[in-house]
Structure formats: C-alpha cells, structure tokens
C-alpha cells in the first residue's frame, strides 16, 4: 500500500504508523457530560466498510501526522492532507473581531 504524504510524496505504508479514525474530535473537558463525550471519543468508532479518513504518522519520514482517505474494502487511497490542516479546516470559523484593528 502506498500513501501520498503531503510533504514527502508517495511512500510505502511501512514508513508510517497507524492511528485510526480521523473524524473523532477531542471534546471539551469542561463541558457538561464530558466523561460520556470522552468515552465516545476514545472508544466508539464508525468503523465503516468503505471510505475512511484516518490518521497515519510518517514516523520514518517527516514526522507529520496526516489524514489519509482510504477505502477499507479495497485499500484504494484517494488522497491525504496534513492532520494540522485537517484540524484547522474543521474548526468553526472564528467569530469576527468586532472591535476592528
């Protein structure tokens, strides 16, 4: 299996370390129901048979965590972005600073 590291280019998956579902988001520890939310974050998985966004770590390369879109039925890979990009893109847009600059 070959993974397209956004920084290093396509590499064999044996250069990477796997870490599972990239759709789960670490909850707010202060919010009500945090324990339940953390349980779901740590333990429960959609585990789809099909396309899956997942974390891989280019341990033997650039040390980037990346989000790879891969099909769990066929192992086809559609693409990858860095985890940092992925996380920032999912953040709600910052509220406009009304005070101006």
């Amino acid at each position: 299996m070959r993974l397209p590291c956004p920084l290093c280019g396509e590499r064999d998956h044996s250069e990477f370390v796997y870490r599972g579902d990239a759709n789960v988001v670490r909850p707010d520890a202060e919010a009500p129901g945090a324990q339940r939310a953390f349980h779901e974050f740590v333990h429960l998985r959609a585990n789809p048979a099909g396309w899956h966004k997942e974390h891989w770590y280019h341990e033997m390369g650039c040390r980037s965590w990346i989000v790879v879109e891969r099909n769990t039925l066929t192992h086809e890979v559609r693409g990858a972005v860095t985890a940092a990009e992925h996380t920032l893109a999912r953040r709600p847009a910052p509220v406009a600073d009304e005070g101006g600059r």
């Binding site: 064999d12 998956h13 599972g20 048979a49 899956h52 769990t72 192992h75």
Partner: peptide, 13 residues
C-alpha cells in the same frame, strides 16, 4: 497489518 480493513487480505511488509 495494523490499519482498518474489511478486505480479507493484507500487504507485503
């Protein structure tokens, strides 16, 4: 192999 899969087959490494 270490990654999510339903393929019933693995890879060379």
């Amino acid at each position: 192999d270490g990654y999510n899969s339903y393929a019933q087959r693995g890879n060379l490494p």
